[in-house]
């Protein structure tokens, strides 16, 4: 399992101090709720910061993910840009963790999946209530196009671990990450494992 890899790099060999694990986080089609819940581990951020350092994440505002040990992916794959970012994370991170319901099963945004995207765009930008006359669907090339359906991240790239919840509680994230960093296969008992 992937987590064995983590274990041997952090086991403090006599000479060198343990190398800090590089962690990157990103929100694809997420609402940043999981990132907020990540911050809810409160003061335990300090011991965590002794073990890890952040590569790309909203915290560090680094734009692209460099080679990392752990990638925390929040949010499902809803548009073309999400695909690029997710593939970049897969290419650079040894271990990818799907964080939260959106990444794990598409989450709330996936409630559009049984509808045709064309009808949704039509209603939201052209025929919906209160729209200005003649409004049209934005076609600026800078905007990433939405996919026909929202996909959980494991349907686009291989994912190593899953941490469900909307959002997963701070304690759940803390328990999950610490077990992972200690090289154990993470498991969440009653109270920590939630899908809502």
């Amino acid at each position: 399992m992937a987590h064995e890899y983590l274990n041997d790099t952090t086991s403090p060999s006599a000479a060198a101090t343990p190398r800090k694990l590089k962690v990157a986080t990103v929100s694809l089609a997420g609402c940043f709720g999981c990132h907020m819940s990540f911050l809810d581990i409160d003061e335990r951020l300090l011991p965590l910061l002794e073990l890890v350092e952040f590569d790309r994440s909203p915290l560090t505002d680094i734009k692209h993910c460099g080679p990392c040990d752990i990638g925390l992916i929040e949010g499902g794959v809803c548009n073309a840009e999400n695909v690029h970012v997710l593939r970049e994370f897969r290419a650079n991170c040894k271990v990818l963790i799907a964080l939260g319901a959106c990444a794990v099963n598409g989450g709330l945004p996936a409630q559009r999946n049984h509808l045709a995207l064309a009808d949704i765009l039509q209603m939201v930008y052209r025929t919906g209530h209160g729209l200005a006359e003649g409004s049209s669907i934005p076609d600026d090339p800078e905007l990433p196009l939405p996919l026909n359906q929202v996909h959980p991240v494991h349907e686009v790239v291989k994912i190593d671990y899953f941490l469900p919840g909307c959002p997963p509680s701070g304690d759940a994230i803390w328990a999950f990450l610490t077990q992972l960093i200690e090289g154990k296969a993470p498991s969440l008992g009653h109270g920590l494992l939630h899908y809502d």
Binding site: L117, D139, P141, L145, P146, L147, Q149, E155, V156, V157
Partner: peptide, 20 residues
């Protein structure tokens, strides 16, 4: 691992609606 769906085809409706 590869996705089961064709990524480019998954943008077909959006391309059609935006004309891009």
């Amino acid at each position: 691992y590869e996705p089961a769906f064709d990524l480019d085809a998954a943008l077909s409706q959006a391309r059609r609606m935006t004309g891009r």
